[in-house]
Design a protein around this nucleic acid. Structure first.
Lengths: 140, 140
DNA sequence: CTTGCACCTCTAGTCGCTAGAGGATGTAGG
DNA sequence: CCTACATCCTCTAGCGACTAGAGGTGCAAG
């Protein structure tokens, strides 16, 4: 096989070099072979792994969840109930996060619209922050 | 005035005791008086400050932004342009975050719906993660 | 006076990286 | 073969915003 350096792996996977080393250090990515001069030399399997990890991270899965997903991937006979549960949990998290951000958005819009661009003592931004009763607090 | 202990301040503000001490240590909250036995004793002004900080944190403002907002609040003659700018920047951040979370949500829904609850080798969750081409990648 | 909770300080840990120091290796040109 | 330069190596420390825990002191009720 061809020897893939860490820099090449970074380019192909879109994961930065120090991050790849970090994933190795926490046991998320298997240790690759080393060249005579002690430099990492990756195989295709490592690249697949990195792509998987990167995509999962982009979807906001935590490292521990990814660890589980990776072991599931390695054992294709297993039931996919765990993978399903992890993805569902993540979906619920994302939905909650969206809801709470929408509430924040509404509140921030009110603050910004209400700002008369005058002095601080008439500023709605400061005012709303200072007095929680001023906002429509659909959250917290 | 009555003496407000740190525990009482925590209860009234909704900010945890260690977090209050942390805010003091980073200079966000002024040091309160101390009792004879070296215990913190807060005034009403501290409680207002804490409420302000808490509300701002709930809206996702960073500590540094809050620092700026607090100095603005202390100087009511100043123009509120900075406060306005900070709030607007935060609003844009929130809007972007919502957009990207909506994309994630769509992708996660496809994964979860496609899961036939069978074995891992037919699992859409794992499959999509493994092969980025499988998802409709509206993001990244 | 004792019990037990709340307080004190200090350090270290969390998560997922990122930055930098200080040195070794690999490669391309002269 | 030598040199220049990019890339690699390990290691430690830092980020933000807390949180947890150890080990000790203060205080109020019974």
């Amino acid at each position: 096989m061809k020897k893939i350096t860490i820099g090449e792996a970074a380019r192909q996977s879109g994961v930065k070099v120090p991050t790849i080393r970090y994933y190795e250090s926490i046991g998320l990515l298997a240790e690759p072979e080393r060249s005579e001069g002690n430099q990492r030399s990756y195989a295709q399997s490592h690249l697949h792994r990195l792509a998987f990890i990167r995509h999962a991270r982009e979807l906001g899965f935590e490292i521990d969840a990814i660890r589980t997903l990776l072991t599931l991937q390695d054992d294709p006979n297993q039931s996919c109930a765990s993978a399903d549960a992890i993805a569902k949990a993540r979906l619920i998290e994302v939905e909650q996060r969206i809801r709470s951000l929408m509430a924040l958005k509404a509140e921030l819009e009110m603050m910004v619209e209400g700002c008369g661009h005058g002095r601080v003592d008439q500023c709605r931004v400061i005012e709303v922050l200072a007095d929680h009763g001023e906002c429509m607090h659909p959250h917290h």
